[in-house]
Design a protein around this nucleic acid. Sequence first.
DNA 1: TGGCCGATATGCT
DNA 2: GCATATCGGCCAA
Length: 182
Amino acid sequence: MPPERIAADFFARDTVTVARDLVGCVLRRGAVSARIVETEAYTDDAASHFVTRPRTAALMGTTHGVVYVYLIYGMHRCLNVTTDANGPGAVLLRAVEPLTGVEEMAARRGVSDPRRLASGPGKLACALGVDESLTGRPFLGEFSLERPSVPPRIARGPRIGIAKARTLPWRFWERGNPFVSK
DNA sequence: TGGCCGATATGCT
DNA sequence: GCATATCGGCCAA
């Protein structure tokens, strides 16, 4: 039985549900494939770019299944996919476990330790060769996604690196997976 | 383990 | 003009 390929309506659903369901999915881009092990949901909460960057993150409110990439700290990029056909939302991809194309990711990152290739949002975007030029493109035009063959053990807790809305448990990760960010 | 700091787009005063 | 940001690498201790 072949793995189930995800279609665009996957992203039309509630943002927190999409964030949870993305954990364990296999992400592909060219020769690179990787298992998503950590995500975060952002909607219209106080930490969301839909609120703090209403102009640049407007596509959170007008689209779903679209890539949103932003620059942070002047040098790191973060990869998001917009969600929810009925309201603003996006999911931040925070960490992946490399499966194939490891040399390509290592070359982009300048490190070889697999655990350091994509165990954080900035590292992930770098390893996948993602930059701001992808913003606005259909996510499934740039990547493909497959559902997990076996359901992952998912944990949840507060999001990382934010000052506001710190109590919302909208970070999801695969429990025990060593490729989750620290 | 903890502290420091880079390098820049964005939004606010 | 200024403070800040969904971070990560390096270094001292």
